[in-house]
Design a protein around this nucleic acid. Sequence first.
RNA 1: GGGCGGUUAGCUCAGUUGGGAGAGCACCAGCUCGACAAGCUGGGGGUCACUGGUUCGAGCCCAGUACCGCCCACCA
Length: 802
Amino acid sequence: MDALYKPEGVEERWQRTWEEEGLYDADPDPSRRSFAIAHPPPNVTGDLHLGHALQLSLADTIVRTRRMQGYNVLFQPGFDHAGISTQNAVEKHLATEGKTRQDLGREAFEQRVWEWLREYGGKIMFQFRRVGASLDYRRERFTMDDGYVRAVMRFFVHLYDKGWIYRANRIINWCPFHLTSLSDLELQHVDVDDMLAYVRYPLADGDGEITIATVRPATILADVAVAVHPGDERYEDLVGREVVVPVVERRVPVIADDRVEREFGTGALKVTPGHDPLDYEIGRDHGLPELSVIGADGRMNAEAGPGFEGLTQQEADERVLAWLQERGQLEKREQYRHTVAVCDRCKSRIEPRISLQWWCAMDELKRPALEALRSGRVRYHPESQHRFAIQSLEDAPDWNISRQIWWGHQLPVWECPDGHITVAETEPEACADCGSKELTRSTDVLDTWFSSALWPFATLGWPDDTPDLLQFYPGDLNTTARDIIRLWENRMIFSGLELMGDVPFTDIVIHSTVHAPAGGRMSKSLGTGMNPLAVIDAYGADAMRYGLMKMASSQDVRFSEGAIDEGRKLANKLWNVARLIILASDGAKPDPRPRTLEEHWILARLAQTQRRIERHLAEFDFSHLVDELYHLTFDDFCDWYAEAIKARLYDGDAGARATATAALERLLTLLHPAMPHVTEEIWSNLPDRERRLIVTPWPEAGDDSQAGALARVQEAAEMYRRSGVRIPLEGEERRIFDAVVRPREDGDGDAAAEVERLRNEIARAEGMLANDRFVQNAPAHVVDAEREKLARYQRELDALTD
RNA sequence: GGGCGGUUAGCUCAGUUGGGAGAGCACCAGCUCGACAAGCUGGGGGUCACUGGUUCGAGCCCAGUACCGCCCACCA
């Protein structure tokens, strides 16, 4: 055993060993209680980031504890095909070859994606293993596996048969680059500088005009009304009359709607239902026509009229502005900064567009899910996220589930030449309505989250009745990031309830977001991203796990290299104290029976700390968990206990050696879930190992009946630290104390200050106890504590002034 | 414009029903090299963002203000 613990090599050796020995395996076994954790399958679009590493560390710490506690643990690995993200990544890659997906064609493009997946999938599983995540790697699943596809198709047909999936022509978010609709959750909002144009619309009867403001003059061609606020006296007389839309010279009504903001611009809004979500809603409510002048490619279409068709929007804007300028209908233009929606992936500006899409109605699906959340059957941690999750689910609108991209689950929808729709899990032979054999399958694919929603049970073989499902569903835990609550968590809950009749898990841990050291999001493009493998190479996986958990204390945390280094030091300290005990104990058999005071003390301390560890785990408080481990190891085990017994170990004291070995075993057990590799490595160096640490039973709940000795010595040390006063200890207590706390050389200089301090404290305590309002109002234990302090200070003062 | 979180030592952060301000790192001093590329012991260092309020007593509870961050949002 070297004096410096070197994780490289050691960690990978154990990762291989655990996996090869089948210690990660989860197999159905009705005789054992199961524990299943649904871990987010990462997108195969590149490398893992520190957020993934944190997520894995938290989950694996729980998983390893549960495994030691005797549960039949399922920690399911896999990937998400991540529709648009993956397609975008592959397209970017193609662009480096000067190609587009259209150059390849759909089939060849899909082939390229599969190749991409094979390459990156392997890389990502390698990263999972390097973190030490004890997933059952045999069970790796992918959301486009054959069996998984069947589950997705079944889900679609199920919802369609219930009437909850339907097709409708509505305004949607259109990405002009990917040429697909997007859900609201797949957008980003960015600030842009635009020009706001003030345009005069003359009244049809020639008597006056209304000025509106717009940033998109080209959409004037699709205007169908002008709206004002109902209470706006400026326009009161105009409501119900008609104005003439510039360029197209169409007569449209002036309507009143309270969704118009009086304060914005001129307080009058041009209504363009075909190209704006708000206008769309106003248009629907007022029965207005829906005109589209912009096509799928983002250019002006035939409806825009001669002279406009084929122009870019910018060209059309200019042409409209020129027209207005000529006729004096352009009042002014001004600089205007506002936010616009862009595609989350390619950052293209979103084009609101009316389009025929497939939708999933949410009303029926979300009802039981909300009930599960409100009743606490499913609980988010922390509590604030629970409220947020409920709120988001309540507000969830119908879900646009169809996408026009190429990579994903193709909709199980067939259409005959007469336009009848047939929905079936597998290709139907004939149209369900007219019997036509000429069926063409929809080229749309499903929103990637539609399939992700099935992860907890589709990975276990649903829709078949499998032993895995019986054993591992419903599961227990899910750990995930905050931004995915609406996309994934809530959808897993409602699909689980709908298809399996129960929730997929009962606890959801929303972990911290790790930011760059300088603050702000970690991002590859900003150069603030960090690769977990680089951290592992520099510090070791155990150190990284420790450090990430230590950081994960609040909603957003900054990455701190110091926390990782703390983990490295802990591993090294543990390694060295083990080295002391193992080398000095000469293969002594472990014997947990304490004889001396320090042995009572350390065993009591281990038991005491174990209960705190268990509490932190139950509360998913990982930061305090690892803090507890650090102080247990450093302060208690090494600085006190090991220092106290060191001499006797070298002297060949058999009892000290046996107990030290037993105490070390216990310490390793408690540390293993958080820092699996170094603990297993040390464990393997202990004499007579019958089994790996990873499958060693978690100790029984602690017994701290020896806490008396602990309390006495601790109190003595505490008082010594505070005051430098010599504590009257006898026998063993005195000996331990002297062994680990060196008395000060002189006492005289400090004694005067100490007397002064004690007198002040006594005065303060007496003052409080003399205050009737304190004695009457403060809780009894607080008053008692104050009395005890007073008595103690007086004893100390007496001892000092003797 | 909403929602959530944050503001405590030079840095990163704890602080569990309100009851004598803490850890790790960094810094200083002493000790010790027979587990520890180090360790041990001790020490210096803080108007707990600000303002008001409740209370015998507030880092903690209430109201407000200022910054910072994240998420959300149809002001054309």
